Computed example of a mutant assay.
Amino acid sequence: MTVHQYGSGQSVRHSGSTATVARARAVVDLYTDGSADPRLDLRPTCGMTLPPRLIQVGDAQFLTADSIELADRLDRAGARCELQVWPDQMHVFHALAALIPESRSAYRAAALFITTNLDRAATLAV
């Protein structure tokens, strides 16, 4: 797993999320109507066929620790995962490209991730 903390060049680890497990389950139940659909399981295991993943998260949001945990799980399962932690950014900071310069940088980083992985896939297909 590649971990980037933009603006500092340092790796980052957070101690925990401000959301409780009970609240998270309640929110998931709102979206899934309590379904136990296996596609909702975010616990990848070794041997699963998983595409490369890019996770971009602001360090000023409550999902930061969850994003780091998911990246760790993907890494342990053998998936290629790049985690980008953006300092002082809120949830969905990408949506404010006209106001937040880091948003535009995040879009460029995502475009680079996509083109790099498409080029890698095209090379493997030949």
Results as ranks from 00 to 15, higher is better:
D75R: 13
P44A: 08
A19M: 14
T45A: 14
M90I: 09
T18H: 07
P101Y: 13
R80D: 12
C46T: 12
T18G: 07
R108H: 14
G34I: 07
C46R: 12
R39M: 09
R120C: 09
Q56Y: 01
Q56S: 06
D75W: 12
S11W: 00
T49D: 06
L30N: 09
V57T: 05
H14Q: 08
C46P: 05
H94Y: 10
D119I: 02
L83E: 02
L99G: 09
S105G: 12
L74H: 09
A22Q: 11
M1P: 12
V28A: 10
E102W: 10
A22Y: 04
L63A: 06
S8Q: 02
D33L: 15
H14I: 03
D72N: 14
H14G: 03
L30E: 09
D59N: 13
L112F: 11
L112N: 15
G78H: 15
P51K: 00
F93K: 01
D72Q: 14
M90S: 10
P44Y: 06
T2F: 07
Q89P: 01
V92L: 10
A22V: 06
M1G: 15
P87N: 04
M90T: 07
F93S: 03
R25P: 00
A97V: 12
D29K: 12
A106D: 02
G34A: 05
